[in-house]
Structures are given as C-alpha cells and as structure tokens.
Simulated assay, not measured.
Amino acid sequence: MLEFSGEQQLIQSEIQKLCASYEDEYWQAKDRDAEYPEEFVEDLAEHGWLGTIIPEAYGGTGYDTLEAALILEEIAASGAGFSGSMACHGAMFVPRSILNYGSEEMKETYLPKLASGEKYLQCFGLTEPDAGYESTAITTNAEKDGDRYLINGQKTWCSRFYASDYMVLVARTTPIDEVEKKTEGLTLFLVDIEDALDQGAVDTQKIEKSIRRAVPSYEIWFEDLEVPEANVIGEVDDGFYQVMDGLNEERVVIAAEAVGLARVAIERAVQYANEREVFDRPIGANQAIQHPLADAHARTTSARNLVYQAARAFKDGRDVGEAANIAVYMAREAASKAADHAVQTHGGYGVATEYDVERYYREARLAHIAPISDEMIKNYIGEHVLDLPRSY
C-alpha cells in the first residue's frame, strides 16, 4: 500500500474537511446550471491551497507535484468529481509557466497575488479549431510593434476564461515558413483579461457541452490585442518547448483526479449495493454486482500506485515521461470502469442525477479525450518507450 508522510496525510485530512461542507446538492446544481463553483474555489484560495506549488518566497506553500496530486485526488473523491478538481486545477498549475520561465520581476509581481487568491491565472490558450493536438500548427500570431505585440487569431476550448484575471496565451512570433523546425517560433504571453476586454480586442462564445458543465469553456477571437513586451513569458520563439516541459506534470495530476473520480464512483456503488434489496437480500451479495466492483477497486488501486510512483519521480527530478503517460492512461481506464460499474449497480437509478454516478460516468468519458487522447499516449509509448517508428 502507498505510504505518505505525516504532513501529506495532514494535507489529505484538511482537504477532506474543506470538501465535506460542499454537499452533493451543491455539485448537482453547478453541473445542472453550468455554473462555475466560485465559492468552492474561493474557499480553497482562502486556505492557501491554490498556492500549493508556488514557493514560500512568493507567498505559496512550497509543495510540489505529489502534494498537488493528493489535493486534487481528494477533491474529486469527495463527490465533486471533475467539476471540483478541474475548477481549481488551472489556478494551481497554469502559474507554473511564470514560475519556471518568467523573469524575477514577473514572479514578484504576479505569484504572490496568485498564491493568495487575490488574482486568478486559470486560463491557458493553446488549442485552435484547425490545430487540435498538433500544437505546432497554430496560426494565432503575435507581431512586434515597438514595445508591444499585436495578437490576432482564434483559440478554442479555453476553460475558466471569465473566472480568471489572466491567461497564458501561445502565439506564433515567427512564421512557420521562416523557421527550421515547426516547433520553433512560438511564444508565451501573459494576457490581462480585463485589459483585453477593455481594449475591445477579444470576442468570446461559450461552448455548450454536456460534460464538466460547471467548468465553462470558450472559443476566443483576438483582433489586434495589444500585449506589452514585458508580458512575454520566457524566451521569444521558445514557447513550444516551455509548454511541452509542463505536460508530464499535468498528466500526473490529471491521473490523480481520475483516481479520485474512480474512488467516489466505487464508494457510491458499494453504498447502494449494500442498501438496495431485491429478492430479500442486498444486491451486493450477488456476484454480478460484487465482482465488477471488486475488479474496479483492483484497477483503481493499481492506477493509484502508478500515479504516485510518477509523482515521486517528478519530485525527485527523474525522467517521468513513461511513468506519467502510463499513469494517466491507466487512471482513465480505472475511472471509466468504476463509473460504468457504478451506473450498472444502480440500475435505472444510474441515470438519475440525484445519485451522481451518471455525472461521474460522463466525466470519466471526457478523461479519454482531454487534455490528450488515449491514441496520442499510445503513440508516445510506442515511439519513446518501445522504440517503434514514429506513427504520425
């Protein structure tokens, strides 16, 4: 079994206590009304959890990926599911761009505000309608004009835009036909959202969706958006490598969220299987119910071990490419199996919103698509682990 330090166990306990005050009805309403759980995120901020990975020197708690994974797993496992964990996921990890690549002045200016929850940096603008997983194909461009950049283009699936004060935007600063490699020529910008709206340089349209409705996503158009040169994050034209550098960490924490989702799905199914009686006995006594849940538990336990193996490797500074990709792949599988069996255990009530498992089922399906598909993970394993020819 996994072993955590006393401090890490205390983190788990504190998150469980905080989440306990947000009952199922809260999350059901947020999902039904497609309303961002602002109260919950503010509560996390007030307790300092949004600054988990921000060093103490900048007002954060100075923890690392492992502790962040524990926090997000417990949020999902509390009953919030992805509606809760992904509502704050961005606030905890998008600031990593500034932490890893921003100037010292940028760190001192923004990180303390983000750690305290005074300001939110939750929105990341990378995906485009015609680019998808092929990030090098983005066409949003940033043209230098004196001490500023003018940005034009379109992004899609930008989550938490109106729940953020800032966004990290990826744009092409050198045309693709002028670089030696298509991975060159991309740059990260820190965009002040209020300023962008005041400029009238941003137009948005909410994407109507049936999954993770409490975390809204948008299409965004930029027309001559002015961004100061001082808001460039890291080196100009090196943005692609900066984005890729954070992907393994993101996969570790998303895998932890999927494990949390699997845990709560199994918990709800077991509770129902013990309470529901048919033919004068609990349905949990039937192997048709019991064995799938036992299988789901075994898969979830295995996936959880992989997740924290990867998290510890990341914490130790070891290469985590293989571990992170396998962890997220197996955690997704565990979440899907658990949610599917939970719905089946509930029978007809499995699709009733009052029992929540239908929401977990929907959210588990999303995990196979975002932020990267199962197929792309298998491409990585095939090429970089098994040393097979590149397949795409």
Rank of each mutant, 00 (worst) to 15 (best):
L197N: 05
L197F: 07
D198R: 00
D198K: 04
D198I: 03
D198V: 02
G200E: 04
G200F: 06
G200K: 07
A201S: 03
A201I: 00
V202D: 01
V202Y: 00
D203N: 12
T204W: 04
Q205E: 15
K206E: 04
I207F: 07
I207D: 05
I207N: 09
K209N: 04
K209P: 05
S210W: 05
R212S: 02
R213W: 09
R213Q: 15
R213D: 04
R213I: 13
A214W: 03
E219S: 10
I220R: 00
I220E: 01
F222V: 12
E223W: 08
E223L: 11
D224T: 14
D224Y: 11
V227S: 07
V227C: 08
V227G: 06
V227R: 07
P228V: 10
P228C: 10
P228Q: 08
E229R: 13
A230W: 04
A230I: 13
A230N: 10
N231L: 10
N231A: 13
N231P: 11
V232K: 03
I233V: 14
G234D: 10
G234Y: 11
V236E: 15
V236Y: 12
V236C: 11
V236P: 11
D237Q: 10
D237M: 04
G239M: 09
F240Y: 15
Y241L: 03
Y241I: 03
Q242V: 11
V243C: 08
M244P: 01
M244R: 10
D245T: 13
D245L: 07
D245S: 15
G246Y: 02
L247K: 06
L247T: 15
N248Q: 05
E249I: 13
E249F: 05
R251M: 05
R251V: 00
V253I: 15
I254S: 10
A255T: 02
A256K: 10
A256I: 11
E257T: 14
E257D: 02
E257L: 00
E257S: 13
E257N: 03
A258W: 03
A258D: 04
V259Y: 10
V259E: 05
V259Q: 07
V259S: 09
A262W: 09
R263S: 12
V264F: 06
V264M: 05
A265M: 11
A265Q: 06
A265P: 13
E267Y: 09
E267T: 15
R268D: 09
V270S: 06
Q271C: 00
Q271G: 01
Y272I: 08
A273F: 05
N274M: 03
E275D: 14
R276D: 06
V278C: 01
V278M: 03
V278S: 01
F279G: 02
F279M: 14
R281C: 03
R281G: 02
P282H: 14
P282K: 15
I283D: 00
G284L: 06
A285T: 12
Q287R: 14
Q287T: 14
I289G: 01
I289D: 02
